[in-house]
Simulated scan of single mutants.
Amino acid sequence: MKYLDIPPLQRLNAFLKSVDVGEYVLMGDLEAYSCKLAGLDKKLSKSLDAEVQTGSSPLELSASPVGPLAESSSRKTLIYLILTMNHIYPDHDFSLLRAHHFQKEETVSKAEEAIDSHLLEVSKVWAKTPGLGESPFLECLWSSVDEAIFLKECDVYSYKSDLETDPFGDEASIWSFHYFFYNKKMKRILYFGCRAVSKQAADEATDTSSKYDRYNQDDTDDDSDRYGMATEMDV
């Protein structure tokens, strides 16, 4: 799958990476991908397709949240959902996910309503942020998403975290949501996931990250001094 560089989404994604809403910090990901497979994705797709066919129950083969798994189109949908998760969270392997880990939403509007209800406090922060609040957050969000994926043509799926084998179930998490907007005609999928994390845990994570960055920076500087002469000689 190929990450799609869409400026309006990048702007929103940068804002959503860490939003302090007072009681908690919201951490979000908003990214779109092409469903054209190549390289490792293509190889994994073939192995997943075989595993899904042989490992699914008769009931799943006839009906599942992504459609009858006896049909190749339904298996492709499941594989795209799995691969998208792998791309967005590369430190975790979602290859063991199956159709029952997902749910097909009744309508796009139902998904929009659920997302909007979680992001009311985020909208207030957006409005107060210089350079961002010229238009309402939710208006910017959905116009950008529609531009990227054309919502009227989408099927919407959600991932239900099992809180154990994914990155969303640590003790610091208060709530989370994970939606996939899949446009078969465009061969695109857009993922929008957010989780609320306690402020204390978020601060600790930031401190740890800062220390790690300083440690790496020191190592990099040392390595540059130590190996600078060799590099020059190589050149």
Rank of each mutant, 00 (worst) to 15 (best):
A172W: 06
K76W: 06
H92Q: 09
T206H: 13
S45Y: 08
M85Y: 06
D170T: 13
E112P: 00
K184P: 00
K152D: 13
K17V: 01
K185Q: 05
A230D: 11
E71P: 00
E105D: 14
I79Q: 03
T107Q: 00
G22M: 00
F177V: 03
I88K: 09
T165Q: 12
L4P: 01
I189M: 08
L44I: 09
G228E: 04
S158H: 06
R226P: 00
K152G: 03
N216E: 07
L138S: 11
K199Y: 02
I79R: 02
T77R: 09
G133P: 02
V197Y: 10
L141A: 13
L97A: 07
V125G: 09
E60S: 11
V108K: 07
F180K: 08
F102R: 06
Y80M: 14
S109Q: 10
F102V: 07
D225A: 11
Y24V: 08
P68T: 04
I174T: 10
I115Q: 02
F181G: 04
N13W: 01
P68Y: 08
A50M: 08
T231F: 14
P58V: 13
E31Q: 15
L61I: 11
E71Y: 12
I149S: 03
H87I: 05
Y3S: 07
L81G: 07
A205Y: 05
E134W: 13
K187E: 14
L138P: 06
L9Y: 03
H101Q: 13
W126E: 02
D29S: 14
H101D: 15
L120E: 08
I189S: 06
D155H: 10
I115T: 07
G55F: 00
E105K: 12
D218W: 09
E112W: 01
